[in-house]
Computed example of a mutant assay.
Amino acid sequence: MKTVKELIQEKEIWAGLNHPNIALQEADVAVCGIPFDGGVSFRSGAKEAPKALREITYTIDPTTERFESIEELKVLDFGDIEGESREEIFKKVKQITYDCVKAGKLITFIGGDHSTTIPILWGIDQALEESFGIIHIDAHFDLCNEMGGDHLSHGSTERRALELKNIPDTESIYFLGIRSAEAEEAKFIRENKMNILGAREIRQLGIERVLEKVKGKMARFKKIYITIDIDALDPAYAPGTGTPQFGGLDGRELLDLLYGLFELPVIGFDVVEVAPNLEESKIALFAARKIITECWGHHWRKGMNIYGKYEKSS
């Protein structure tokens, strides 16, 4: 089996879009793995996702489901961020996020559990001098102040986000696909103004109406980050995850939702909580691959990025 370092030195990964020897300024998209699942409260295994995902990106062509070519897209894979401790890993994640945001590149992170989104948001917050919005696609709110005494758990991601200087209020986050809440979270959302469309509401409203609502609320932000927990999908579409919840989005709903959300000024996204070893068929892993490449297609389609520069490399 090839190591992660060997994988990222090969252009064939990421549908042949990987350019391992270019500088960040030459790239259109920067991608990075965070093989850490020390923030979970239940089943582990998400740390295996970054390497496992790269290993199945040889088998696809650089086209979207709308039959568009993205073969000119330049992807720079930084490999996996590792360290001797969570503190070291999170510090590195924060720095690489900061660098990519400053460079005006679309950032793509592969978790890891959902706690890995926390240092990504730290890096965005440090890099920006303006407020930004977050779209949280998940079965869970991740609004617990702590879980099991851990303030950096995968269930505390958005609670930590609300502490950032560039997240002005609780309505800066839009929660989509939710269908589970801790008692603490239920109390929190009753006491604060929140943007929430659960999986049930999304099915009832339809994607077109959902997008109208989300865009209406998030239009005030010039920069938006999307975090995608694979358990937003119903377990039928993504069984390989640590805390599956019945009654979720189907694959078509999620792909159509992301298509519309990328009409907003998205500066980056992550896909987290994929645990390949929890299911033999690796359905969740293949779902993550599709999500990532389609989002890259949406980014490429826009042509002009939110930093006001022509973003397709010459």
Rank of each mutant, 00 (worst) to 15 (best):
R160F: 11
K222S: 14
W122R: 08
E130F: 02
Q204P: 02
I189N: 07
R160T: 14
D138M: 06
D142Q: 06
K187H: 00
F175W: 07
A199Y: 04
I120M: 14
S131E: 15
A186G: 15
G216E: 14
N145M: 01
L211T: 11
F188K: 03
F221V: 13
R179D: 01
Y225M: 07
E208W: 06
R160D: 11
E146A: 15
E171H: 02
R203A: 12
E163T: 11
S180M: 13
E191C: 02
L205W: 08
F132I: 00
G198M: 09
I189D: 02
I173E: 06
T116M: 07
D125T: 08
D150G: 12
S180T: 14
I189W: 09
D142R: 03
I178W: 05
E163W: 07
A181I: 03
S131G: 08
H140Y: 09
F188A: 03
F141A: 12
I189M: 10
M218F: 13
R220I: 05
G216K: 12
G198K: 10
I120V: 15
R179A: 02
P119N: 15
I196G: 09
T116K: 03
I118A: 14
F188H: 01
L197D: 14
I202Q: 04
S172W: 08
K193C: 06
R209D: 14
G198Q: 09
R159M: 12
R159N: 03
E212W: 05
R200E: 15
H140F: 08
I120H: 10
D138C: 10
L211W: 09
I118M: 13
F132M: 00
H151E: 12
H154F: 10
G206K: 04
L205E: 09
F221R: 13
I135N: 05
K222W: 00
T157L: 15
A127E: 02
K193P: 02
P119W: 11
F132T: 00
S172L: 05
V214C: 09
T157Y: 05
E182Q: 09
I207T: 12
R159K: 13
S131T: 14
E201G: 00
Y174H: 13
N145H: 00
M218E: 14
D169P: 01
E130C: 01
E130P: 01
M194S: 12
G133S: 12
F132K: 03
N195V: 10
I135V: 12
Y225H: 06
D142I: 05
K215D: 10
T170N: 10
G148W: 02
D125N: 15
S156G: 01
E182A: 15
I189R: 11
I189C: 10
L197S: 14
E191W: 01
L128V: 05
G123N: 10
I178M: 04
E146Q: 15
K165P: 06
L162A: 07
Y225R: 01
K223C: 09
V214D: 04
G177M: 08
I207H: 05
I120P: 04
I224N: 01
I135F: 13
L143F: 14
E163C: 08
S153W: 04
G206E: 05
S131R: 13
L128Y: 05
G133V: 08
E171L: 04
N192V: 00
I207P: 06
I124Y: 14
H136T: 10
I207F: 11
G206I: 04
I196P: 12
A183W: 07
I226Y: 00
I173T: 03
L128P: 02
W122E: 11
H140L: 11
